[in-house]
Design a protein around this nucleic acid. Structure first.
Lengths: 255, 255
DNA sequence: CGAAGTTTTGATCAAATTCAAGAGTAGTGG
DNA sequence: CCACTACTCTTGAATTTGATCAAAACTTCG
C-alpha cells in the first residue's frame, strides 16, 4: 500500500531546495530529520476528516496548523474559488495576525497532524534549522500560487485544462508516484473551481482533448497523455492578444 | 520628498505579523533591527534600472536577490503575464534550485539593494531571528499571490478591475502613503497583463466604472473612489455560476 | 433496482477578444 | 510656443468563446 519512499512515519515536509543547483527534476527532499520529526510528533495530534468536511474557515482564530498525511485538501478564499489542492506532506493553516486567511475543506477523506500554533511557535524559536526548511517550503508554495495564477490567466478553456493536467502530472511525479497515468483525486467541479471555469466548460475541454487524441481517458479520473507535444502546445498557446505593438516581439532574449 | 515613516535608511523589509492578533488593519511592521540592516547593507550594493529594463530572466542562474528601494518592478512567468507588482521594501529574486523562477522587469525607473545569494545564505545561518521574519514576509507574498489568483478567477472584467483597484488602494495604505486617491504607477497595458484581460477590456471597464459614478478619474493614473459600496459590490459579485446544486447554498456557516 | 449525485452534451445568449481606427498625451526639436 | 511624432488610451463593429439553462447518460451506493 505504501506509495513512494517514506523512510519513517511521522510529520513529513518535503520540498525543493532553495540553493542546490544539481537536482534531476523537481524531486523533493525530506526536510525534517528524525529528531525534528519526533519533536513535532510530540506536540501534534492526528486528526481525521471525512470527504466534504470543513476543516477551518477563513477568519477563524488560528489555533493550529496542519501537516497532511493522506487524502486531498482544497483551500478556498471564499466558498467557490479553490486556491490550492494539498497533498501528503503539505502544510496548511498558516495564519495572518492570528486568523486563518483561507478556508480548508477535505476533498477526499483526510488524515493530518494537527499542530497547535503556540507549540509550533515555541518549536520554531527553539530550532533554528527548522525555519530555513519552512522558508523553502513557503517559497515552493508561493511558486505554486503563481503557477495557479498563470493557469487562470489563460484565455482558452482547453489551455487551462491542459496546464492543469501538466501540473497534476508534475506534482504526482514530485510525490514519487507512478507517473504513466495521471490520477485525478478531485471531481470535475473541484477542477472547475480551481481553473476558474464552469463545470460544463471543463467537461467540454476534456472531450476536446480526447477527440483530438491528446489524452486518453481510462475512466473519468485516470488520464493518459497520448500526444505530449500537442498537450504542451495547447498549454503554451499564448494567452491574451495584448499585441506588443511597438516592441517588435523579440523572442525573449534567451541568454 | 520622503513618504511614510522611514526611521532609517538601508534595507527595508516590512510585513504583517504571523501571530500578533491585535493590529488595526494591515499596517506593517519593520522586520529588521538596526544591526541586521547594517549587516545586510554591508553585503549589498545599490543598483539602478531604467524603466523597461529587464532585471533578470526566468531560468538564469540566480546570483542575487533584491530589496526594492524605489520604483515599481513587475515579475513575469513569461513575457506577458505579470505575477506581481513590487514596491518599496519588497524582496524579489528568490530562486529554486539556484535558478530564477520569474523574470523581473522595471515598470518605472528603479533603485534596489542587490544581495549576492551566497552572502544571503551565510547571513541566514548566522542570524536565527532573521528567518522568522523572512517567513512572515513569504507568507504575505503567498497571500498576495492567492489574491492575484482570486482576481484572475473573476468572470467579469469590471469585477477584476474593481478588485485590482481595491488591491492597489490597500497596498498603498499598507505602505503608509496618502490614501485619498489611488495612484497607479503602471500603465493600462501592465494592468491588463496583471488582471488577465486584453487592453481594450481594461479600458472599457474603467469607463464603465466612471459612467456608473463608482470612481472618478482625475487623469489616467489618479483614481478616486466615489462610491465605495458600489465598488465593493462589483468586486464581490460572485464569479462563476458553478451552481452548488445539492448543497442548498448555505451562506458560509459563519461561526 | 432505484435514487441521488456526477458528468456529458445541446442550444441560446452575454461578454470579452480581435481588428481597426480615432482621440488624447508626452516629449522633441524647430 | 507650436507643430510633429511616437505612444498610450479609448471606442466601435464583427467574431469567438464560455456561461447559463436544461435535459439526458452514466456512476455509485444503499
Amino acid at each position: 500500500m505504501a506509495i513512494g519512499p517514506s523512510p519513517s512515519a511521522g510529520p513529513n515536509l518535503r520540498t525543493i531546495s532553495l540553493w542546490a543547483p544539481d537536482n534531476p527534476l523537481g524531486v523533493r527532499h525530506q526536510l525534517l530529520n528524525e529528531e525534528q520529526k519526533a519533536r513535532i510528533a510530540k506536540i501534534a495530534s492526528v486528526v481525521r476528516f471525512k470527504k466534504g468536511d470543513q476543516i477551518y474557515l477563513r477568519g477563524d482564530a488560528a489555533e493550529a496548523a496542519f501537516n497532511l498525511i493522506s487524502g486531498v485538501v482544497a483551500t478556498f478564499l471564499n466558498s467557490d474559488h479553490v486556491t490550492a489542492f494539498l497533498y501528503n506532506g503539505d502544510v496548511f493553516g498558516l495564519s495572518e495576525e492570528g486568523r486563518y486567511t483561507n478556508s480548508a475543506k477535505a476533498t477526499t477523506s483526510v488524515t493530518a497532524y494537527k499542530i497547535p500554533i503556540h507549540a509550533l511557535r515555541r518549536l520554531l524559536s527553539a530550532d533554528p534549522d527548522l525555519d530555513v526548511h519552512i522558508i523553502s517550503k513557503l517559497c515552493e508554495e508561493l511558486r505554486q500560487a503563481q503557477r495557479h495564477a498563470f493557469i487562470l490567466a489563460q484565455q482558452h478553456a482547453v489551455a487551462r485544462v491542459a496546464m492543469f493536467l501538466e501540473l497534476q502530472e508534475h506534482l504526482q511525479a514530485a510525490r514519487g508516484e507512478p507517473n504513466s497515468e495521471i490520477f485525478l483525486l478531485m471531481d470535475r467541479s473541484a477542477i472547475a473551481e480551481f481553473v476558474g471555469l464552469s463545470f460544463a466548460a471543463v467537461s467540454r475541454a476534456f472531450r476536446t482533448l480526447v477527440t483530438q487524441k491528446v489524452i486518453l481517458l481510462r475512466d473519468r479520473r485516470h488520464v493518459r497523455v497520448a500526444d505530449r507535444p500537442a498537450l504542451e502546445r495547447l498549454a503554451d498557446e499564448q494567452s491574451v492578444g495584448n499585441a506588443p505593438r511597438h516592441q517588435p516581439r523579440r523572442p525573449t532574449i534567451a541568454t
